[in-house]
């Protein structure tokens, strides 16, 4: 399942998209500890599969939460510099902005 957490508002689209089909085989879940803000957690999804997800408390303010990881002058570069994106070897995590 591809889960898109985040929102679209007047200023833009801010989604963290997670391809949870990788999460079942992943043993160590490095994404969880890689994020300095503690955005991610492991849950059991509605189909009883383990899945990485964005914590509820962050879903409505991702643009602000991730701002320290996204310096203004770097934002046009490859998103690979983000700790979360880098941590996942399967590249299951993507940012839309």
């Amino acid at each position: 399942m591809i889960a898109n957490y985040g929102y679209t508002d007047g200023s833009g689209e801010y989604y963290i998209s997670i391809n949870t089909s990788f999460c079942a085989e992943c043993q160590t879940h490095p994404c969880i500890s890689a994020c300095p803000q503690g955005v991610f957690e492991m849950i059991t999804d509605d189909y009883d599969e383990p899945a990485c997800s964005v914590k509820d408390s962050f879903r409505k303010k991702l643009n602000y939460t991730c701002s320290t990881c996204k310096p203004a002058r770097k934002s046009s570069e490859s998103p690979l510099f983000l700790p979360c994106v880098q941590a996942c070897v399967n590249r299951a995590i993507k940012h839309t902005w």
């Binding site: 303010k61 643009n63 602000y64 701002s67 320290t68 310096p71």
Partner: peptide
């Protein structure tokens, strides 16, 4: 303030 601060942190 927290939204403005978060935005400003992007420039350091």
């Amino acid at each position: 303030a927290s939204r403005i601060a978060a935005m400003t942190r992007r420039v350091g």
